Simulated assay, not measured.
Amino acid sequence: MRSRYSAYVLGLADYLAATWHGSTRPADLDLTEDTEVKWLGLKVDFASEAGDEGVVHFVARYKVGGKAHRLSEKSRFIREDGRWFYLDGEVEQ
């Protein structure tokens, strides 16, 4: 999770695509629309795994146009061939 957050901060779309499970990965991951986003921090509230499935709940803080925002998500991951892949997430309001 932390490496994917860092990839968003650095605009590394190739890394995000490589760590996103093929069954849910978007065909095109364009981060250029996020150029005004200033990421401020990540807090992982909990992480758990059961076999080859994992769940991470996190809160990411960011600013757009000087206004602060929070993204709270419960993300699901799956392990294949020893590597973890982001599957999907439920954004919490």
Rank of each mutant, 00 (worst) to 15 (best):
M1L: 11
M1F: 08
R2T: 03
S3V: 13
S3W: 04
S3H: 06
R4C: 11
R4Y: 09
Y5P: 15
S6N: 10
A7H: 13
Y8V: 02
Y8A: 00
L10Q: 09
G11W: 12
L12Y: 10
L12R: 15
A13E: 07
L16V: 00
L16G: 04
A18L: 03
A18Y: 04
A18C: 03
T19F: 09
T19H: 14
W20F: 06
W20Y: 03
H21V: 02
S23L: 03
T24Y: 07
R25M: 02
R25F: 02
R25H: 01
P26Q: 12
P26E: 10
D28W: 09
D28C: 14
D28E: 14
L29S: 07
L29F: 11
D30E: 12
D30R: 15
L31H: 08
L31A: 08
L31K: 10
T32P: 05
E33V: 08
E33W: 02
E33P: 04
T35R: 08
E36M: 13
V37A: 10
V37T: 13
K38A: 04
W39N: 03
W39G: 05
W39E: 01
L40G: 05
L42D: 03
L42K: 03
L42P: 04
V44L: 10
V44E: 14
V44W: 08
V44R: 14
F46N: 11
S48L: 00
S48E: 03
E53H: 13
E53F: 12
G54D: 05
V56L: 02
V56M: 01
H57A: 04
H57Y: 06
F58V: 01
F58C: 00
F58Q: 02
V59P: 12
V59A: 15
V59L: 14
A60W: 11
A60S: 15
Y62S: 09
Y62R: 11
Y62I: 04
K63T: 12
K63R: 14
V64R: 07
G65N: 14
G66A: 11
G66N: 11
K67L: 05
A68E: 15
H69A: 13
R70D: 08
L71T: 05
L71C: 09
L71S: 13
K74H: 00
K74S: 02
S75H: 04
R76C: 09
R76H: 14
F77V: 06
I78K: 15
R79E: 10
R79H: 06
E80C: 03
E80G: 02
G82I: 12
F85I: 05
F85R: 11
L87D: 13
L87A: 13
D88T: 12
D88R: 10
G89L: 10
E90H: 04
E90Y: 00
V91T: 13
Q93K: 07
